[in-house]
Design a binder for these strands. Structure first.
Length: 412
RNA sequence: GCGGGUGUAGCUCAGUUGGUUAGAGCGCCAGAUUGUGAUUCUGGAUGUCGCCGGUUCAAAUCCGGUCACUCGCCCCA
């Protein structure tokens, strides 16, 4: 262990970061529940095959970013690098086919061995939403609408742009892939080193290369939309019409492709320019072939994941913690009475607190630092009269309030 | 995995061509003010100058390595 440092790419979340983090999760839960998504939580580790079979052996995530380990029983396990595969596995393990469609929301930590950067960590956290067992474009529309609403309630739709594309079904995608490989193979000499590797592994990715030489080849490259067969085109049209009807704006980004093998048809990302090269804040798409690849029956699915740390950073300001009523007791008898009153207020839903040490001046200062709404001063004088001296910290006014009236007074 | 930048007190940072006890502001603690959060004043604490090694009479300063963060690439949320 090197010093008292957190492991590379991990971080402690506390103070303002924690308030931001919780706010993102709270908003997400609230919106997801209104959309009638139900909660799910799956294990943080799975058998390695759950990820390796579905994400694609050649994908970067599987080939070099997973935290794999063998447990004491010799099982090959992996810390989840994403949520979808685990939820899909759960759908089949639990026999949820009997319910037909399921709408789930979840959140939690993910693990990827990558080079850390701002907005990119080795342990990071995602919001996740999935609709399983629904092949209809209405599911695509709903899942995107959910993401849009979350961003809206977080106050950041203005800072993000929805990029939308269709990868088509298996047939369309294969036809396009072949055309693309043929085109780029004819221009091998002009391709960047990275893109030469992509040509073998994942030719679609050449489309979003940032290399200038690569980009120069794009205008004449075959267009994905041209290769969509009739069903794929009709599906995509239905999705676009649904979004239009909901006034959700998007740009059709023909170069948007996704790195994981299981995607088909709809692919989308909400992108911001405020986070440098980690601009994707929510990304997702349809994965009708995933559960089959895992060894289950053919089952449609669509979902997205959002990076909680990234969303938290985009939050314009940190949410404020609630303002407490703070007790300042003088002496042991007063302290005991104060604890009783504290308990009474807290039981009635009032945020209340009491410092443990210091003279009155110190306690007043701490109360002010804690952004107290009221300070309840309780000394021998007050104790005899059955009152607290309640100080309004905004106006500075102070008056005696009987123990019986305290609750009503601070709730007003 | 590749290329660039940075690392000095809790925080933001200064630190001259290497030179002797390493500084400021903010914050923190104590007191002026033994029942009151501002301001002011007075006093105080805190650094293995990221870490290890090298050069030198002498290193926060120069060199090498290493760790962490950061920007771009890759990839992705």
């Amino acid at each position: 262990m090197a010093k008292l440092q957190p492991v590379r790419g991990t971080k402690d979340i506390w103070g303002e970061d924690a308030l931001r983090f919780n706010h993102v999760v709270d908003v997400f839960r609230s919106v997801a529940e209104r959309y009638s998504f139900e909660p799910i939580s799956t294990p943080i580790f799975e058998f390695t095959e759950v990820f390796s079979r579905t994400l694609g052996e050649a994908s970067d995530v599987v080939s070099k970013e997973m935290y794999c380990f063998e447990d004491r029983g010799g099982e090959g396990l992996t810390l989840r690098p994403e949520y979808t595969a685990g939820i899909a596995r759960s759908y089949m393990s639990e026999g949820m086919q009997q319910f037909g469609m399921k709408k789930f929301y979840a959140y939690g930590p993910m693990f990827r061995y990558e080079r850390p950067q701002k907005g990119r960590y080795r342990q990071f956290h995602q919001l996740d939403a999935e609709i399983l067992g629904a092949p209809e474009p209405a599911a695509d529309i709903e899942i995107i609408a959910l993401a849009h609403q979350v961003l809206k309630e977080l106050g950041m739709v203005e800072n993000t742009v929805l990029h939308l594309n269709s990868l088509g079904d298996q047939e369309s995608r294969q036809a396009y892939r072949d055309a693309l490989v043929e085109y780029f193979t004819g221009h091998k000499d002009k391709l960047s080193e990275d893109s030469l590797a992509r040509l073998e592994k994942n030719p679609l990715r050449i489309l979003d290369s940032k290399d200038e030489g690569d980009r120069a080849l794009l205008p004449d490259a075959p267009k994905l939309s041209y290769y969509l067969n009739e069903t794929s085109q009709a599906f995509f049209d239905a999705v676009k019409q649904g979004l239009d009807a909901m006034d959700i704006t998007y740009i059709h980004d023909e170069n948007l492709v996704r790195g994981l093998d299981y995607y088909c048809h709809t692919a989308f990302e909400f992108i911001t320019t405020d986070l440098g090269s980690q601009g994707t804040v929510i990304g997702g798409g349809r994965y009708d072939g995933l559960m089959e690849q895992m060894g289950g029956p053919q089952t449609a699915g669509i979902g997205w994941a959002g990076g909680i740390e990234r969303l938290a950073m985009l939050l314009k300001e940190a949410p404020k913690p609630p303002r407490p009523v703070v007790f300042v007791p003088m002496g042991d008898a007063a302290t005991n009475k104060a604890m009783q009153l504290l308990n009474m207020l807290r039981s009635n839903g009032v945020v209340a607190d009491m410092g443990f040490r210091g003279n009155m001046k110190k306690r007043m200062k701490r109360a002010a630092d804690a952004n107290a709404r009221f300070v309840a001063i309780l000394g021998d004088n007050e104790l005899l009269k059955g009152v607290v001296s309640l100080k309004d910290m905004d106006s500075g006014d102070q008056q005696e309030v009987s123990f019986a009236d305290l609750l009503a007074r601070v709730q007003a």
